[in-house]
Amino acid sequence: MARADTEVRVSLGDREGLLGTLMLAPAFLYIAALVGIPFFLAIALSLSSATIGDPHIHGFVGLANFAHAMHESAFPIALRNSIIVTCATLILTLVLATAESELLVRDFRGKWLWQILLILPWAMPVSLAAVDWLWLLDSEFSPLDWLLRQAHLLGPGTPWGPANHLYYYGREWLGLGAITMINVWRLLPLATIIVLAGRTAIPREIFEQAQVDGAGFFRVLFRITIPALLPLLVVAGMFTALLVFGDMTVVALTTRGGPGYATQLLPYWAYLKGIEGGALSEGAAVALFMFPVLLAGAVLALRMAYRADSN
């Protein structure tokens, strides 16, 4: 009756540790080669004198590239702008995402259709989104300007007049505001999805209990919802911050850092210096200025993850 399974040979597929290593290896090696190595290459570059014409890393110049970059007038502006845009986007996105998740946690008819519409900005390629906003806030034909003129807020003899246009991308603060707006617009869906993941995980009973206890809307929001959402709000904030801080597409296609350097951001400036200007090493140095911020974000995230695990 019993079949002695002596014929079964132990093969590679049985050895879990080895199999695990082999299955992980391709992805790991790929990432090491094309993320890890470039990262250290970036550091090496920033300490060298490489240019597009002579891209070899031989001349070691120490921190000269950093010093040089810091002394250019554009650097403090770009750094300041990057921080302003990131912070403003962060705050707006988190507030809006919390509100939006409060709506989407419910069930309602045709929810999938609303979801498609709401996720649209995130699904759009960033460059095409930027072009869309470039046209939406066009200096001459912006429909927003038209609406403002119809409301008699813009144009001769009005509060924001006398010009007929606001020239969004042509002014420092309007430009930075526009860049912030575009970032909020394109990242809100992602942040909402993350916050919603936390929101749907809160058990219903907690809200019912709070209602029975007679807590009002704002009391529930600040005492129950937001504390419970906090871990995922941090995650959402981190994603938003990193994606905004590291992005150059929006600024490259809208204000182009102008007027002058007024709306310059760090990553775009690194691009201009490193690729357009041909000074690879200085571009890498500028790009590396972003690293401390990114590292802080990473440490924060790992801490959060660790804390979530130990709970």
Binding site: L41, P267, G274, L280
Partner: peptide
């Protein structure tokens, strides 16, 4: 987190690798 490392940090050395 690897996904969040922005291309802007890597594109210059990657450009060298690609060339």
């Amino acid at each position: 987190l690897v996904y969040l490392i922005p291309p802007t940090l890597l594109f210059i050395p990657l450009y060298q690798i690609v060339s």
